[in-house]
């Protein structure tokens, strides 16, 4: 039986390598047919911001990879509402992540689920495996 795996992303995309190496685990883990979801909390919400430009810091901009998550059947991406608000961000500042539902004539559906801190706590409580980065 598939387990519920959740990757909890808590760090900004640059400054440390945690975000990039978390994404590497998510992509490898997608091959294991588990029930996968991602959460972005705290400074982790910056990982999904639109229009990232890393030229000046000489690092690879890996943010386009998030838009491929739907192809890896990673379709549940939780964003904590308070974390966005505390940083003056809204969903419009984030990439629009979607997946195609093969059971619904490949209809394009939103991957992002905006949840409150309290709601996310319940989602976390429901997981079998939490990997935090």
């Amino acid at each position: 039986m598939a387990k519920k795996f959740m990757y909890v992303n808590r760090k900004p995309p640059y400054g440390t390598i945690y975000a990039l190496e978390s994404l590497e685990v998510v992509l490898i883990g997608a091959a294991f047919d588990q029930d996968v979801s991602l959460a972005f909390i705290g400074d982790g919400v910056y990982q999904l911001t639109k229009g990232q430009d890393t030229k000046a810091i000489g690092q690879k901009n890996f943010s386009p990879v998030y838009s491929a998550l739907g192809d890896y059947e990673v379709t549940k991406i939780y964003i904590e509402k308070e974390s966005l608000e505390e940083r003056g961000l809204t969903l419009d500042d984030l990439q629009h992540l979607v997946w195609e539902d093969e059971d619904d004539d490949w209809a394009e559906k939103d991957s992002i689920r905006l949840v409150s801190r309290a709601e996310l706590a319940d989602v976390l409580d429901d997981q079998d495996v939490l990997l935090s980065f």
């Binding site: 387990k3 945690y18 685990v25 883990g29 294991f32 588990q34 495996v129 990997l131 935090s132 980065f133």
Partner: peptide, 19 residues
């Protein structure tokens, strides 16, 4: 990294240290 995912699947608990 598959070894990490497998550990999550096979073990009763995966305990993360650091980060």
């Amino acid at each position: 990294l598959g070894q990490l995912i497998e550990a999550g699947i096979e073990a009763d608990r995966l305990v993360v240290f650091g980060a």
